[in-house]
Design a binder for these strands. Structure first.
Length: 138
RNA sequence: CGAAAAGCGAUUGUCGCAGGCAGAAGCAAUUCUGCGUGAGGAAAGUCGGGACAGCAUAGAGCACCGUACUUCUUAACAGGAAGGUGUCCGAGAGGAUAACAGCAAGUGCCACAGAAAAUAACCGCUCUUCGGAGUAAGGGUGAAAAUGUGAGGUAAGAGCUCACGCGAAAUCAUGGCGACAUGGUCUCGGGGUAAACCUUACGGGCUGCAAAACCAAAUAUACCGACGAUGGUCGUUCGCGACUGUGAGGGCUGCUCGUCCGAGUCGGGAGGGUAGGUCGCUUGAGACUGCCGGCAACGUCAGUCCUAGAGAAAUGACAAUCACCUUGGCAACAAGGAACAGAAUCCCGCUUAUGCUUUUUGCAUU
RNA sequence: GGUAUCAUGGCCGAGUGGCUAGGCAGAGGUCUGCAAAACCUUGUACGGCGGUUCGACUCCGUCUGGUACCU
């Protein structure tokens, strides 16, 4: 039952979004620019990944196409984030992530899902393996 | 070849999102389960018009803006219907189209060319006392040149006069609710331009759901410059209160009035705080069907139905089968395709973008 | 979502319905031993479509694109 995407797993508060883009670290991962801000959970914050997808009006003029891209990306994320949830709970981490779609064509669902899977793997390696090493060492 | 209207896949499975209803758990926030609902004809542009809300349940005058053949229709409109007139197309029947009041109220403008662009005299013509006077027949440039033809008339000419036309204003008669049409009388011949100023008639208060209302949270004010009422009467528990004045300044649209508030206000540059939730929010000039009235747009009445309400912003993804279209094929089938486009307070229009399917209907040909 | 406003050469920017100024930049030349500066010459524009008008950058409608404000 980890495939849902309720409101608490989405990033919708203005302040949280500003914090993410201010403090988070970004890197390019075609077809996305990924911005991540992983930090220890505070009292009122749950230990889960919080997700945001953004498609610029500059690349897709029509709202129909923007909606299509957002729906595909959201769907792919929804199906492939279960491992990150487990890791977040384990390490008491709030994991804010923004996916900015930078390609100029609409990729198929298969391609996007493939990319999201690769991304998920990379995130798990970069953020949670380090945490484990550090806790073990410390 | 047109015209009008309707539709935009269906079912199943596995996940997912947003409202609603019902049930269960919980002190509550909320969670779980079930059922059912969830983009458009343009949701778009924001070009008209409203509803609704705030400002005085919106006042006067001027300014400003809009509209412009008539009648009807509508909550209203620059929308719609039926007619009228002009222009264009057509042999015709007929069709298409029009910001379609006024330049005969006033003012302005009309480049270049041309004698002259609107109280016409440069050439020409005629007369002459050689100073000049009369004259719009001829000049051919221009987008536009002073009503056309003929006759009379004259020094030469001219609507100067007459006849027949053309066009216009006024007026009368007939028909029509009316725009207008037909005919008569009389007066005229004034070039174009009002999407030039303007005139006439009618209409328009301003701002917009980021309006407005409520709850919660958070605060902090000081400095500089300008302007400013604190009077009277009554009551009094002597704190003050009521009534009535003077009043800077502010609200109401740009100005003037008018009106309301009024003890601090305005301007300047600093500094601080918030930006979370509820409501507005979807039952409405609603939709569909039928009768009747009307040429029609549309209206009255009756019955049935409830049909999105998000908020970093839902309405989705994948798979299978069946339908739809195109191409190939006798067929089975195979390959490919499916437009324009995504609600944001809500309606009525207009405009723009659009692929196909279905239904009704008109014309032409066979 | 709503309300305004703008669009003129490569860039900035004026423009009463009648030939679209000016500056910067570019190109060629003069000057110089070479350059700079100066001077001379020169190319390049009215966002698209339609209407009014004899004639439209200008007036009107519509479409496209940009900018600002309201929270």
């Amino acid at each position: 039952m980890n495939e849902g995407l309720p409101k608490e797993q989405r990033l919708y508060k203005k302040k949280a979004i500003e914090t993410l883009f201010e403090k988070g670290k970004g890197f390019n991962f075609y077809p996305f620019r990924v911005v991540v801000y992983a930090h220890s959970s505070e009292e009122d914050e749950p230990s889960i990944p919080r997700f945001l997808v953004s498609v610029s009006k500059k690349r897709f003029h029509h709202a129909v196409k923007r909606n299509r891209v957002k729906r595909l990306v959201r769907e792919a994320w929804r199906r492939n984030k279960s491992e990150i949830i487990v890791n977040c709970e384990k390490h008491q981490i709030t994991f804010d992530i923004a996916l900015v779609y930078t390609a100029t064509i609409i990729l198929s669902y298969e391609e996007i899902e493939k990319k999201i899977k690769q991304l998920s793997l990379r995130l798990n390696n970069n953020y949670f393996r380090d945490e484990e090493n550090r806790t073990n060492a410390g």
